[in-house]
């Protein structure tokens, strides 16, 4: 009897590390880039074959274009994006004091449009918003991610972490079940990555277009047969913030290419 008990105890101990795998230590964090094949990597590395750069070019044109009833361009306040926007995307989602909550880069662009350009907000996943945020985030390429360092953002990082750990949908899976516990394995033919949001907005070959992190999160949620949160909802922003804080220290890659 005691032998069986010992075996059971030993089995529990052996299983424990797998069950408690949890968060990825900082030195084991890897961009989705490292999970890709050589062809897709080459596509991302060459700016003349990376289709995301087409959107960056469009964003550059929008940056300089006067819009709204204030007849102002982004460049009229922010000047040359290469210096003024460098490192900005690596800090987003960032805590907004006036609103008392974190906001994403897309939301910041639309707040700027409302407050300073007196222009209508750009729709989520629309070409113009993706192009502008790709152009802004591209200026941070190579900059280490620091989002979530702001002490005021901490409760929201924690909220995002809880959502990341929470099982949901008909398949009853949490983000962590794949992206913390089972990365480097395969889901059907596709490698499971760590889900590090280093290159958004990114060009996904499956989408044949650029897409935001929120679009990616929503498609994972449909994947586990859960009801996806709406674009811009506090839950998605919190998740985005947690993911960025989880990728702390990794370099921005925008616009990345992913399969």
């Amino acid at each position: 009897m005691s032998v069986w008990r010992a075996i059971a105890a030993a089995a529990l101990f052996a299983a424990a590390p797998a069950l408690l795998a949890g968060e990825i230590p900082p030195d084991a964090r890897r961009s989705g880039y490292s999970f890709m094949g050589p062809d897709t990597r080459a596509m991302q590395d060459d700016d003349t074959s990376n289709p995301g750069m087409l959107f960056v070019l469009e964003g550059e044109a929008l940056w300089a274009k006067k819009t709204g009833s204030a007849e102002k361009a982004c460049a009229d306040c922010h000047g040359d994006a290469r210096s003024s926007m460098k490192g900005v995307a690596a800090r987003y989602p960032a805590f907004d004091k006036a609103l008392g909550r974190p906001i994403t880069l897309d939301q910041r662009i639309n707040l700027c449009r409302a407050n300073h350009q007196q222009a209508a907000p750009l729709p989520y996943e629309g070409r113009d918003l993706l192009a502008l945020s790709a152009f802004v985030a591209h200026q941070s390429r190579g900059v280490a991610i620091t989002a979530g360092d702001d002490p005021q953002a901490k409760p929201f990082v924690e909220q995002g972490r809880e959502l990341f750990m929470q099982r949901e949908g008909q398949l009853n899976l949490a983000c962590t079940n794949c992206h913390d516990d089972n990365f480097d394995k395969r889901l059907a033919g596709a490698p499971i990555t760590q889900g590090q949001p280093t290159g958004y907005p990114l060009y996904r070959l499956e989408w044949q277009t650029l897409g935001s992190l929120e679009r990616r999160l929503r498609s994972c949620m449909s994947g586990v047969r859960a009801q996806a949160y709406d674009y811009g909802s506090p839950e998605l922003v919190a998740l985005e913030l947690y993911l960025m804080s989880r990728a702390r220290g990794l370099s921005m890659e925008t616009p990345a290419v992913r399969p």
């Binding site: 060459d46 003349t48 087409l54 044109a61």
Partner: peptide
């Protein structure tokens, strides 16, 4: 529409 051209 923008295009990316790579000619040496």
């Amino acid at each position: 529409m923008p295009a990316l051209i790579n000619v040496p």
